[in-house]
Simulated assay, not measured.
Amino acid sequence: MKYPVEGSCQCGQVSYKLHTAPLKVVACHCTECQKLATSPYSVTAIVAAEAIEFTGEMKQWCRVAESGNTNCAKFCPTCGNRVYHYNPDDPSTIKLKLKSKNEAGDEVFEPKAHLWVSEKLSWYDVPEGIKVFDKQP
């Protein structure tokens, strides 16, 4: 894999350069991620904060998760695309939400596990051989 991998929001106002591989990539089936993605699940790449750089203006929205942790979302104020999530109590990692601009990113952002399958839509089947977790591992 050749780095950096680059991506942007839908309108292009916010962009990123990811300089190293994600720590992990997961598909989350929780109700909140279904709302976020407007699909059966949301793909998230957990990356080291120092391994990624962003350009463009972002706005922020925060909520308290079921775990009791604060989950903040950064998003593009122009097109509304989520860019990443983070826990303000642990700024060492971020949860990147954007797809890359190049085909190489397809490989980088392939989920290796499916989380919150206890809230999975009944008509979606998780691929065989993938790790699954009822909730957050």
Score class of each variant (00 low, 15 high):
34 Q>N: 02
51 A>P: 00
96 L>K: 02
18 L>A: 11
69 N>V: 03
60 Q>E: 10
91 P>L: 14
23 L>K: 06
105 G>E: 00
36 L>T: 07
24 K>R: 10
74 K>S: 14
64 V>S: 03
45 A>E: 01
36 L>K: 06
64 V>H: 02
57 E>R: 11
34 Q>W: 03
82 R>K: 05
83 V>R: 05
120 K>M: 14
14 V>C: 14
90 D>C: 06
91 P>D: 12
81 N>M: 05
26 V>R: 13
113 A>K: 04
110 E>L: 14
62 C>D: 15
4 P>Y: 10
89 D>Q: 04
113 A>D: 01
137 P>M: 01
86 Y>I: 01
92 S>E: 14
22 P>S: 08
97 K>G: 11
116 W>V: 03
59 K>F: 07
80 G>E: 01
54 F>N: 01
29 H>T: 07
46 I>Q: 00
130 I>M: 03
22 P>I: 11
33 C>S: 06
118 S>L: 09
110 E>Y: 11
111 P>H: 13
29 H>G: 09
131 K>F: 09
78 T>V: 08
94 I>E: 00
28 C>P: 03
70 T>P: 06
20 T>L: 15
79 C>P: 06
62 C>V: 06
68 G>A: 08
102 N>A: 05
128 E>C: 04
112 K>E: 10
133 F>P: 13
63 R>E: 04
56 G>M: 12
114 H>Y: 15
94 I>Q: 01
2 K>Q: 08
6 E>F: 12
101 K>Q: 03
105 G>N: 02
89 D>K: 04
103 E>S: 13
76 C>R: 01
102 N>C: 02
75 F>S: 14
106 D>Y: 07
50 E>C: 04
59 K>I: 01
86 Y>W: 07
34 Q>G: 01
34 Q>F: 02
88 P>D: 08
58 M>C: 03
61 W>Q: 09
92 S>M: 07
113 A>G: 02
115 L>P: 01
6 E>A: 15
129 G>Y: 09
14 V>R: 12
65 A>I: 02
19 H>T: 13
50 E>H: 08
36 L>G: 02
137 P>Q: 00
55 T>Q: 13
29 H>V: 09
62 C>M: 09
136 Q>C: 05
47 V>D: 12
90 D>S: 10
70 T>I: 14
30 C>S: 08
87 N>K: 03
80 G>W: 05
95 K>S: 11
78 T>I: 08
26 V>M: 11
94 I>V: 04
68 G>C: 09
72 C>P: 10
81 N>A: 13
111 P>R: 13
127 P>N: 12
116 W>D: 05
2 K>V: 09
108 V>C: 05
20 T>K: 15
136 Q>A: 06
66 E>T: 06
87 N>L: 04
53 E>G: 13
46 I>D: 00
111 P>A: 12
5 V>C: 12
3 Y>Q: 14
118 S>T: 10
7 G>F: 14
52 I>R: 14
101 K>D: 05
98 L>F: 06
85 H>V: 02
130 I>Y: 01
124 Y>L: 12
124 Y>R: 05
51 A>R: 00
54 F>I: 01
87 N>I: 03
137 P>F: 01
104 A>D: 15
25 V>Q: 05
57 E>W: 05
86 Y>M: 03
75 F>P: 14
33 C>M: 07
41 Y>E: 01
45 A>G: 03
116 W>T: 03
24 K>Y: 07
122 S>R: 07
25 V>H: 07
128 E>A: 15
98 L>C: 09
90 D>H: 10
133 F>K: 12
20 T>P: 10
42 S>F: 08
